[in-house]
Write a protein that binds this DNA or RNA. Structure first.
Lengths: 196, 196
DNA sequence: AGAATAAAACCGACTGGTCGGTATGTTTTT
DNA sequence: AAAAACATACCGACCAGTCGGTTTTATTCT
């Protein structure tokens, strides 16, 4: 029965995400994680080789939220694709408020640790490429004006990262999912070709 | 003669910025900073009460770069103001590649330490307000289309933060100061009222 | 000018605590 | 009985900050 094993593993992950969120990666100690999970250190190191492994496992799971939003509603006119993406914003911003500190610390690690850097740079480049080709498609189908797809994609990714950061920095500063939706609107206004 | 004192103080700051950049705030030990500065721990704690104080002192200095860029070229038509701001981009991105890891760690601290949060949220809100009023002025003088100034300002700040982040994540990914300049262009295109 | 003195600047060993990871042993499952 | 899962005590390294002392600088007095 690997039931118990799975249970323990997921309890460690749950506890880790809490500890990382509250204390950050550096301050979240394995001991605390174990305590919160109601599990011994032996169990912890039975399931994960290092603390960093736990972190990468969590990261992997979190990125799937974005993939979900990005992959959603394909095979439609491009403007609609962008529009539908905004449906995920409330969920994204909610999950960000819990996970972004951890995410930031992960970026920090990324700039210094090659293993983590690979795990971070890959999805980031994926998003950039995805938006660039979306825009290219939009131009091809005639719904977008002719901009540099790469440049516009950078703007989109930048705005997304920036908005997420701001939502962390100043949670009360605005209704961030609303701001994000309106930002998409604003960017769309300058991208969508006028009907005529 | 407080010459020696000043010298020591600035050597500590120099060493600190290097250590923070290379190892991050958490891993940069006071001992290392002292060693790099060629100064004893006693001297360190003579000049600064805590490690965090050093950090805040550095932060203060770094933010002045942005203030400089933001304050530059006032009393002009608003589109020109934005245009001239881009002159600072190469300098900003260069200094960011050294200081952004530290900057990120500072954001992290910001989300957990009230003292640091105050030091971080204040300038951030300043920039938002500054851009919002710039845009409002642009609309008033007739050079901008009628957008929500607050929303557009959020987009600008977001894009700026996002671009800085990306330049850290993927330094080789693009010529970031160029991308930033073109991004301003792109945003201006949708903000500036068509001549007619 | 030169000695005396006070204060600022600086030194480095030490403390108390934390933490990631290990070694060894015990329990549970197969 | 073998192997997987789990428990616990422990180690070595690290580190922010302290403290009693020494050196350098500035000031005052003679």
């Amino acid at each position: 029965m690997q039931q118990r094993s799975e249970e323990t593993r997921s309890r460690i992950l749950e506890a880790a995400v809490k500890q990382f969120a509250v204390n950050g990666y550096g301050k979240a100690s394995v001991d605390n994680i174990c305590e919160q999970a109601g599990v011994s250190k032996g169990a912890f190191y039975h399931h994960f080789q290092t603390k960093q492994d736990v972190f990468l496992a969590l990261l992997d799971g979190w990125l799937q939220i974005f993939d979900q939003a990005v992959e959603a509603s394909k095979d439609q006119p491009v403007p609609e694709t962008f529009q539908q993406m905004t449906d995920y914003f409330p969920y994204i911003f909610e999950s960000a408020s819990d996970n972004l500190p951890m995410f930031l610390e992960f970026l920090l690690q990324a700039s210094r640790d090659d293993k983590v850097w690979q795990a971070s740079i890959a999805p980031y480049r994926r998003y950039h490429k995805h938006f660039a080709s979306l825009i290219k498609k939009g131009i091809a189908e005639g719904s977008f004006v002719e901009v540099d797809p790469n440049l516009a994609a950078r703007l989109i990714v930048s705005a997304a990262m920036g908005l997420l950061l701001q939502s962390l920095l100043d949670p009360q500063g605005a209704k961030w999912d609303k701001v994000a939706r309106e930002t998409v609107q604003l960017m769309m206004n300058s991208l969508v070709r006028e009907e005529n």
